[in-house]
Design a protein around this nucleic acid. Structure first.
Lengths: 298, 298
DNA sequence: TTGAGCTTTTCCATTTCGGAAACAATGGCA
DNA sequence: TGCCATTGTTTCCGAAATGGAAAAGCTCAA
């Protein structure tokens, strides 16, 4: 019969990329790790890890097995938390992946509020703009901005995402404001990294504009700084430049045009029959925080 | 760290209702079962089973834990089957719950066709008209006829369900055929057990008729036999009386009226990230068998 | 009241498990 | 190119766990 420890060890070996490292993390000698991986492979009749003495890689069977094992382990964690009566109470470690800018501006400031209600919970937050495979990377959930797709994940909408064209008053004073969409051709535009093309919706329907400008970067933080500094016109989300619009550091241009509306801010997590309390609570917290009309829209 | 054997033992104790029985089933002495249940409870800090020396019942925590453990165990089974390369091949035991009549008429005859393609698979089929909790009862899937509801289960539609009013020619000869819906009041009607009221849809909209007749039973098999024997008018599904309609043993009455159409034949299974191959294959088999227009409708 | 059948405890034999050490293999670095 | 630190594997041994038999305590039904 399968030993659960073998699965934990296997998962740790994969996530740490080495048997020795897994052994150190779990408090076992390398010998034990090696033996139990071998035993697991023998029982399954398959090689899970392709190993040289210096590095380890997953076989195809190993990859699929690993994805499943992660689900099983968190399932067990959740079942034990439930039975231990800590079901409605968050406990353990909550691993979250979130976009860098949004995470810094609209998650980080609210974390303390969540943590003080859940003292037994540790948060691991990774900010990245890569669309990581949350199940393979071992995340409990991710906050994402994008179109809702993704097969095996459940998405819960947190807020709509509005994107506006904007520039600094300074820039407008120097270059004038565009009156119609074609005027953009005579302006400095600041494309952001993963949407080189601007999908815009206006009174006359939708349109794709290819922005051209002096600055190309993969960092939306740099675009943000550049537009505030008066470098040109950018298409920015309201959550990103809401305060600047209110304070007058930025003004909207071509207000009849907005970014295409099929973007949403959502929380995604692996589909599971029983969602761990920590995940449910955190998503509820975010949803309540942003509400139907997020504070950055008001 | 949790021992997987403890979970298997716990699940078996619950499903068999006794520690001794679980021990016999798993090949352990009663002493071992007792010790490991105790260990599990100690680790969780909760009592899972309320026990007297003669019988065992689940505590609330135990019930929730049991539901989760079942998911975990089948998850492990699936993960191992995947890694063993038997992923696309059905293997193990497939436990199915199905309605009695439908199961006898439209599942049982086709089982051999499925089994000969999957020699490593054993089938456990339980026919019952109770809406059992498939996850708690340890079923992999169920075939159901009804309105699509149910929260945590995934339903896949297999076929629409049409229900017609019918009677034997013999009965019609003796009693005449009803011409309009109100005529039913002067006829013998045969209600079936779980739909005492007939929800009908006709040209003038829908209607609920309360059938009155000399025979009341909870067995749809008896209703079926009765209507064929000429005891009255019944509302039967086409999958039930299709052959009799074709052979002339039964004729449709009030053809402008049919049973309400929001009934479907569907396969339901617990929502899981990785569906076991055996379940997927069997559902595919049934779906292909019945097709968009089931053979009993043709 | 009795007895069958259940759970639990105790003690013992057996198996399994983990670690240290020795060994083999690889890749980085001088 | 050659050295060496690091890594995975194997072997052997002590320690811990597991499973079983027997006995005890209990409950329900006849």
């Amino acid at each position: 019969m399968t030993n659960l420890g073998d699965l934990e060890i296997f998962a740790r070996v994969v996530s740490s990329g080495s048997m020795s490292a897994a052994g150190r993390a779990l408090g076992f000698s390398p010998a034990v790790i090696s033996k139990r991986i071998k035993r697991l492979e023998d029982r399954l009749g398959t090689r899970l890890l392709q190993r040289t003495t210096r590095q380890i890689s997953l076989t195809e069977a190993g990859q699929g097995f690993y994805d499943r094992v992660l689900g099983i382990l968190t399932g067990i964690e959740e079942a034990e938390a439930y039975a231990s009566g800590r079901s409605s109470q968050a406990q353990g470690v909550l691993r979250i992946s979130a976009p860098t800018s949004f995470g810094r501006m609209h998650i980080a400031p609210h974390l303390t509020g969540f943590m003080k209600d859940h003292l037994d919970l540790k948060l691991h937050i990774v900010l990245t703009d890569d669309f990581t495979d949350i199940v393979a990377e071992g995340f409990d959930m991710a906050v994402r901005i994008g179109e809702l797709t993704d097969s095996s994940l459940v998405a819960r909408k947190l807020a709509p995402v509005r994107r506006l064209l904007c520039a600094s008053p300074d820039y407008i004073a120097r270059n004038g404001a565009p009156n119609e969409i074609g005027d953009l051709a005579r302006h400095f535009c600041l494309p952001a990294h993963n949407n080189d093309n601007w999908k815009l919706e206006g009174p006359e329907g939708s349109l794709v504009w290819h922005p051209e400008g002096p600055l190309v970067t993969n960092s939306s933080e740099i675009v943000r700084a550049a537009v505030i500094a008066g470098a040109g016109i950018a298409l920015r989300s309201t959550w990103d430049i809401g305060p600047e619009l209110r304070s007058g550091q930025l003004v909207q241009v071509l207000p009849q045009w907005e970014g295409s509306k099929n973007l949403t801010l959502s929380a995604v997590y692996p589909s599971r029959q029983f969602l761990p309390a920590k995940v449910r609570l955190f998503i509820d917290y975010l949803a309540a925080l942003y509400g139907p009309v997020p504070y950055w829209e008001q």
